[in-house]
Amino acid sequence: MNKPLNKMAVQATINGESKAFLCSPGQVLAEVLRDELELIGTKIGCNTGDCGACSVLVDDRLVCSCLVLAAEVEGKSVLTVEGVANGGELHPVQQKLLEHGGLQCGICTPGVVIAAKALLEHNPYPTEEQARYWLAGNLCRCTGYDKIIRAVLDAAKTMRGGAA
């Protein structure tokens, strides 16, 4: 069990790389990602888990990083939007969001990329309704979600190898 410290040392795998960072006991993961690890792709829209802009995967689980204490990820694996593309190759969700114009201002996009990636890993054959419900926690004020949902369904199709 951890000893009480004002700053805690945490080791975690961030986007595939082993990282160590210091955090306060009450500091949330979103803040540490942005301020300590300079992963500014994770956005903070509300800080109360209501907008989804700070979505990341912790051990492949989709979460709001504003509602995870940084100390909780000790020994775990964190994936942020910066780690989604494989080198220069975009993930199909990223590629399809670009092709469909599934972003306007783009502030929700990192969260949408992460959440949609998680959806397609969880369910390769999402219906429109399933995609809409899975992404209900990712608020977008610009697009009306239309092109986001189309992009996600198209990405699913691509990932299935073009099958319907």
């Binding site: 888990g49 989804g52 689980r61 709001c64 509602l67 209900a136 926690g137």
Partner: peptide, 9 residues
């Protein structure tokens, strides 16, 4: 209970 993100936690 909340979004997919919330349900996950």
């Amino acid at each position: 209970i909340g979004s997919t993100q919330i349900t996950g936690r």
